[in-house]
Amino acid sequence: MTAPQILTLADLLNLIHTPGEHTSINHQGPRQQFTSRILPSTTAGAYAATLQNVNIWYGVNPIRPSATGRGKAEDITRLAALYVDLDIKPDGLDSFETARAVINDLSTMLGTRPTAIVNSGNGLQPIWATDPDDPALTDHTTTTALLRRFGRLVTTVAAAHGGQADHVFDLPRILRAPGTTNHKNPAQPVPVVAVTDTGYPLDAATITTPSWATASPNNPKTKSNSAKPSPHQPPGNTPNTPAYTHRKWSPAGPPTHPPPATPGSSRKPPASPPYTASAASPKKTTTKPPKPSETASGTS
């Protein structure tokens, strides 16, 4: 079994983006303007590493190099990943253990573990990479609907564990950059740490109709895989076995009660393609300070 690896931002982008794609790097320090820069995904991590004593976020989904700021939905070229923001806070989840349990349940429903898990300092952000060769994931109507339905699934699973997840299910979503420092509380800065997990890329069809199982300690034949801890975990957090019955994610709406259990997917993860340097010129944009919801919501 391969040991989990700590990921830099460059490493994470290598897992979810392909050569030639671009991302936004966004940063803001105390009493500073919120600044965005569009860069090739191959060089964005190196640029982020030069920024000191600021909060740094990256665009999860690839963006048109001509976009301004962090971009809008129409600027996104592909849904590169599914992502969840599980903050440990009074109006979120009560512990890292509960956050891990939510990730386990979602992994069972999707049929695979995340590609990576980011510890933002205030919670966990699982990232499930998608298949870069699936043309359906470049269609805005399709991807917007997929994220909306996935958001309903996450809301249902978090509620089953007595909490809530942040609403981060938009295409131009930015999340905390691994390998940087979270300065949300200036008096207590915390590192943002990402580690690899064991998941494989998802296509649109799998996302629309994910696998499901029932978690029942009295029925070992249908016991959920979510009860099995992954060896790939951010340091200091342990998984939890939930007393929770999984439900199928229906394409038409929120999860419903499941039919009889069926086997999960047996696909293997493809090898990540090597990156080649891009000569595209970066674009830098400085904007007015954002509203609190623009940086605080979904960015832990």
Results as ranks from 00 to 15, higher is better:
156 T>F: 08
182 N>Q: 05
79 L>I: 07
158 A>E: 08
187 A>H: 12
99 A>P: 01
269 P>D: 05
225 N>F: 13
118 V>R: 12
127 I>C: 02
214 T>F: 08
44 A>F: 04
79 L>C: 06
48 A>Q: 11
123 G>D: 03
165 A>S: 14
110 L>N: 08
212 W>C: 04
229 P>L: 02
236 G>I: 02
37 R>Q: 15
99 A>G: 04
211 S>M: 06
216 S>F: 06
33 Q>H: 14
83 Y>N: 14
33 Q>P: 01
167 H>F: 05
194 A>D: 03
55 N>G: 02
194 A>K: 11
224 S>G: 04
19 P>Q: 07
190 V>L: 14
176 R>N: 01
211 S>K: 07
46 A>R: 15
227 A>W: 15
196 T>G: 01
259 P>H: 10
26 N>W: 12
170 D>C: 06
256 T>L: 11
38 I>M: 14
212 W>E: 02
262 T>W: 08
278 S>T: 14
49 A>D: 11
216 S>L: 09
15 L>E: 11
10 A>C: 00
216 S>N: 15
140 H>R: 13
267 R>L: 12
134 D>E: 07
264 G>Y: 06
230 S>F: 09
237 N>D: 07
153 L>D: 04
207 I>C: 14
245 T>Q: 13
125 Q>L: 12
100 R>I: 00
79 L>D: 00
212 W>Y: 14
48 A>C: 05
24 S>K: 05
43 T>A: 10
192 V>G: 02
66 S>A: 01
32 Q>C: 04
